[in-house]
Simulated assay, not measured.
Amino acid sequence: MKRMLFAACAAVALIGSPALATAAQDNGTAASTAPVPGGAYTLDKAHASLTFSVNHLGFSWYTARFAEFDAKLRFDPADVSAASVEATIDPNSLELPSPPPGFTETLKGPEWLDTAKYPTITFKSTKVEPTGEQTARITGDFTLHGVTRPVTLEATFNGGYAGHEMDPNARIGFSATGSFNRSDFGIAYGVPAPGTTMGVSDQVKVVIEAEFTGPPLAGASGGAK
């Protein structure tokens, strides 16, 4: 079971056009209305999540998460296609909902993630294609279980600002989704036989929510995030 992706997901973040980049939210104090600047952005881990789901026996989509991941983003709001993102995930940070005794360890073991042998999952974008005013398609090299294959994420730009009195750095937010077949990465244990749902689906669905912080607001005096 791995919805990891991605990293990468997480990563995911790449969309803002010049029009989108001026979006700002006012929570009672003034947010800058200057355009969101281009440059290097880092993941705000306090405002990010990486979840994945697999179909269980055809009855439900079992959902879990990775608690530890990081991402770095570079983008120019004037040229979205030049954006890039890299993400790393710690598979040992796997968290499951009410797992039976030993179940988490089983999923980290040789038949599944094999975290002892493959302690890192990564995603590195290779292409970013704007698909709308607030959306983009991000293709990248996803490495899981020692195998690297292309994975595509559909990302949505949720807004951003150049800075805020209480948050004196540029901030942007994204949502992203994607999917892949775990058997493509050498994790085929429990995949249902053709024509049945008795097992755990080959398809893994990934959902990423991420905020990134960037260059400081010109003239900002500092503040709490």
Rank of each mutant, 00 (worst) to 15 (best):
T197R: 14
G132M: 10
P91E: 02
Y118G: 05
A67R: 07
T131D: 09
E95W: 01
C9Y: 04
A10E: 03
A87H: 12
T177G: 07
A23L: 13
G199F: 08
E86C: 00
N181I: 03
M1F: 06
P77L: 08
N55Y: 01
I15S: 06
F174P: 03
V54R: 13
A71W: 06
N181Q: 12
A218H: 05
R74G: 06
T51D: 02
T139M: 07
H56W: 06
A34D: 14
P35W: 06
A82G: 15
K117G: 07
H164A: 09
S49N: 15
S201H: 07
E111I: 05
A67D: 15
P97D: 14
P168Q: 00
S221G: 05
P194L: 11
T106S: 06
F103C: 00
P101Y: 07
D141K: 08
Y161T: 15
F123K: 02
G140Y: 03
A210Q: 02
L73H: 05
C9M: 02
T143P: 12
V207Q: 11
T29W: 10
P91V: 02
K205W: 07
G173K: 05
T51V: 07
W61C: 10
A116H: 03
T126C: 08
V128T: 08
S221A: 13
K225G: 03
P35K: 10
A136V: 11
L20R: 09
N158I: 02
P99L: 14
L113E: 01
A210F: 04
S98D: 14
R149A: 14
L73V: 15
K72I: 04
P77M: 04
P101F: 04
A8Y: 04
T139S: 14
P194I: 09
T29M: 14
